[in-house]
Design a binder for these strands. Structure first.
Lengths: 333, 333
DNA sequence: CTGAAAGCGCTTACAG
DNA sequence: CTGAAAGCGCTTACAG
């Protein structure tokens, strides 16, 4: 059997309570006994049993993560792994552990969230995406369970979130394209169910507005998924109507399809993506893309959540991570 | 306070022991009481407290994962996320949870492994890489803690592992290159501390041997890391001595550097990579690469570990996952 | 088939 | 500053 607190107590000639207090750094313990107890722990190579602690404390110092399991995105878009890394870095610093589940779809996601909550396995949950009508968000708020969302949630107050300013990022991007001389600027976005899709579209529209360029709804596409194919298809359809001089997409994968179309048809169109995936610099031409700093998103999500778990009042319940426009050849001329 | 087994017992008019037996599907419980207990659980929306169960069972149904935190590799090489996905899929099927830590370096890795073991947080550990003198492997074997390694460990018996047949994969690959007419075939491998590096080198040598091509040590390079730069540098040095007609690399990133060198110097050399990363098909020319089926590696690692945790005697303690050569333009002519 | 009781390894309010 | 005791929410050998 493993060494327990009792063994240490016996060896140190104190009560288990005292050993426990030493472990948890209770202030009201004399230096003398501390030394003795530490020595005993050392000698026995005692390590606290985390599970027992968890039960007594009703806390696990563990965060739960739900990872949407979209194969394509997971590999080609480093968002999730970067975000996880950020989460992990902050959590490890604060001695929190991380538990995760892959989910196949939103219902699945909800099931895992439910399990996290009920089983008492985790102290808090980080959601890596925010949908328009997010079942998990609804459920967690209703259960009053601590959580944070990466992605600004829609129409919900009093919940913690971190996000980029997607509106501003797209606004600036379009502005820059206009400065470079573009005036027929198209927009190819992803599924409507993601809130950032809408924010980016708004930023695009606003930039055109303020520059007195009219918004042409026929140059706006909302695809069903972030794939090369959908980007290509959108271009195909768009060009039957009009060939733009710039195309803003909300995801690098969409942009890849756009680039492919452009190359095949020998067009000259500026193209931009989002996420600054590793693939983007290997495109021909290399793709200009907005880096959303996913690691920072994760880091700050963990920070917000852990601070609130530790009882620190957060002055604000959200955090905005800056974006960075990485300009490459695809927008040069 | 949350609903406990006692509340259910009271409502169902049975003892807590009985409720517990119903939950854990004990066979010796009458159908009648089962029904009553289930009804009570339903009514109270009772969910078992996993932590308490863990303590009583001395098992957490959780697997621990150590993820080597090499930024570059993590994003550009989907190996880890694919392996994690495979692990996750099998684990979820068997109702195991997964906990992970990023490690900065091998010592860090060992610390996290230690913590996993001591804290009793996890029932078993999956190591995502095997080094030559692997501290974690040594430690875990010595502690007799259940674990499995992705990557064939060196010089160690009685431990569970999954891997590709790296020897065979490289052997076949080189053979194919020879068939295509190559005879000055160079080899650019990664750091020696990874065991697969050696296996791949052996496969390369054997293929040359059996075809009666001599092994030219000056065409063999072992770089310090899997990066574009090292691949490029190796080429640079190699070509001062001799320009090969084919280059086998043990990682796509190395191959990217090789391709870059070839393009800049207008050479005609066949190139192959390993891992079939998403980037490889976007190269110019698209890169031929060995797909190591990382998801399967993860899946089978989890399977081996969980089976052994559940007390099923595994007839074998390792599993070989097949590789697939994905041929693209880089080896065409 | 079921219950009372002890136990898993900690924590902590209470008393001193 | 320290200890005895009760408790966290389960499980299970023992007895019936």
């Amino acid at each position: 059997m493993a060494i327990t607190i009792k063994d240490v107590a016996k060896l140190a000639n104190v009560s288990p309570s005292t050993v426990s207090r030493v472990i948890s750094q209770s202030p009201r313990i004399s230096e003398a006994t501390k030394v003795i107890v530490y020595a005993a722990m050392e000698e026995l190579k005692y390590k606290p049993n985390a599970i027992a602690r968890n039960l007594a404390n009703a806390s696990t110092k563990t965060l739960g993560l739900i990872i949407p399991n979209k194969e394509e995105n997971l590999f080609k878009n480093p968002f999730f792994i970067q975000a996880m890394r950020g989460i992990s870095i902050y959590s490890q610093k604060k001695n929190y552990k991380i538990m995760f589940n892959y989910s196949e779809n939103p219902e699945d996601e909800l099931n895992y969230v439910r399990e996290f909550v009920h089983s008492k396995w985790v102290d808090g949950i980080i959601l890596l995406t925010a949908y328009e009508n997010d079942l998990c968000i609804d459920y967690l708020s209703q259960q009053d369970f601590p959580f944070v969302v990466i992605g600004r949630p829609y129409n919900v107050h009093d919940i913690m979130w971190v996000d980029n300013d997607n509106f501003q990022a797209t606004y600036n991007l379009v502005n820059k394209l206009i400065q470079k001389g573009a005036h027929d600027i198209a927009f190819i976005g992803g599924p409507q169910r993601y809130i950032f899709s809408k924010d980016r579209l708004e930023g695009y529209k606003r930039a055109l507005d303020l520059r007195n360029l009219s918004v042409d709804e026929q140059l706006i596409f909302e695809t069903l998924d972030f794939t090369d194919e959908y980007g290509y298809e959108a271009m195909d359809e768009m060009c039957k109507y009009k060939v733009p001089d710039a195309v803003v997409t909300t995801d690098d994968l969409l942009a890849f399809g756009v680039l492919r179309y452009i190359k095949e048809h020998h067009l000259e169109i500026k193209v931009t993506g989002f996420n600054n995936t590793p693939l983007s610099e290997y495109q021909e031409p290399p793709l200009t893309s907005v880096d959303i700093r996913a690691e920072d998103l994760g880091y700050n999500a963990a920070k917000l959540l852990i601070k609130s778990l530790e009882g620190n009042e957060n002055p604000v319940n959200h955090f905005i991570v800056g974006t960075e426009l990485v300009e490459r050849k695809s927008t040069e001329k």
